[in-house]
Simulated scan of single mutants.
Amino acid sequence: MTEGDEPTGVPANTPYPRAVRSFVTRAGRTTTGQARALADLGPRYVLAFDPNTPDLAAACTSKASAEGKPYTRVVLEIGFGMGAATAHIAALQPETLFIGCEVHEPGVGALLKTMGEQGVENIRIVQHDAVEVLAKMIAPASLDGIHIFFPDPWHKKRHHKRRLIQPPFVHELAARLKPGGYLHCATDWQPYAEQMLAVLGEDPLLANTAQDYAPKPEYRPLTKFELRGLKLGHGVWDLVFRKR
């Protein structure tokens, strides 16, 4: 059995383990520009984690429509890092409202700074663990898409149980998609890509849009890290599944 064939260690019919989180604690300092963006733009674009808002997508689109900015689609992104890809995709798809979950303040500040500089307005941010956001604030069949780009691969075998893409969580993700909605994952770690392919392929609510791995969708930009890896011969794997 190869490392990529390792089972997740979590039966598909058990609740998603609360010890697993959508983020890894990272060190980082918020820059002056990021702090300024947090202060200036945070009140408008950063939303509080609120379990009393059980349908965040509907609440956001309803408010935006009242402000004269109707959105036809809602996409959730889990762990947007410094937000460069998020801002890029949002600029390409102004009819779509993107809800990004990221716990790290420098990343939230960086995305807000980029939004201000580029005039991107169709993004809302929840600075909280996406596992809880999904469980408490995202209603079933309320999303048109979900992006999970380069989640922590937890390279060591004994840490595989900490990986985000596991059967119970994937099933919760699929349940939040509208029929025909998509789940797009990407990773640069082949054993994790193999696990993702197996886990997503086993969920009864999802169907693969490709025979195995998908061509990189045009909307997903190449990051500096990814470009550096490709020059060194490293691979990147995209997986795009649709809700049946």
Rank of each mutant, 00 (worst) to 15 (best):
C60N: 05
R73W: 08
Y71P: 13
A85F: 10
P17M: 05
A139K: 05
F98Q: 07
C101M: 01
G83D: 01
K63E: 12
V10M: 01
T114W: 03
V74N: 09
G119F: 06
A66H: 10
R18A: 13
D129C: 04
G145R: 01
A141D: 12
C60Q: 05
N13S: 15
P94I: 07
T30G: 10
V120P: 15
V133H: 09
F23P: 15
V126G: 11
F150P: 13
A135C: 11
S65Q: 08
G33N: 03
A87F: 02
F98K: 02
Y16P: 14
P17W: 00
R29L: 08
T86M: 11
V131R: 01
R29A: 08
L41F: 14
V46S: 09
T53F: 12
N52K: 04
V10K: 01
G109D: 02
M137I: 02
G116E: 10
T53L: 15
D40G: 09
A64T: 08
A57P: 02
P17I: 04
R21A: 06
R124M: 13
T61W: 14
I89E: 02
G42M: 13
R44T: 08
G42K: 04
V74E: 12
L134I: 05
L111Y: 00
K63D: 13
D129S: 05
V126S: 09
F98E: 05
A130Q: 04
F150L: 14
E132F: 01
S22Q: 11
A91H: 03
T30V: 08
C101Q: 00
F23C: 12
F98T: 06
Q34L: 14
E77N: 07
A19G: 12
G116M: 12
D40V: 09
A90V: 04
E132Q: 04
T25R: 15
L41M: 11
T86N: 04
G9R: 03
I78Q: 04
H88F: 12
G81W: 03
P54R: 00
T114K: 03
G107R: 01
P70C: 10
T14P: 07
Q127Y: 00
T30Y: 04
D55E: 14
K69G: 15
L38C: 12
T32G: 09
L112D: 02
D129W: 02
P11V: 07
T30C: 12
K136D: 13
L143S: 06
P51S: 07
A64S: 10
S62L: 11
P15E: 15
V133L: 14
A110R: 02
I125V: 06
V74W: 06
P94G: 12
A85T: 11
K69M: 13
N13I: 10
I125P: 03
D144P: 13
G83F: 03
G109Q: 01
L92S: 10
L92E: 11
T14K: 02
L41C: 14
I89Q: 03
G100L: 05
P11A: 02
A48I: 09
I138C: 11
Q93W: 00
G68V: 12
A35D: 14
R21Y: 01
H88M: 13
G9M: 06
H88D: 15
K113P: 15
D55A: 15
R18S: 14
V108H: 00
A39I: 11
H88W: 12
G107W: 00
F23D: 14
A91N: 06
L38P: 04
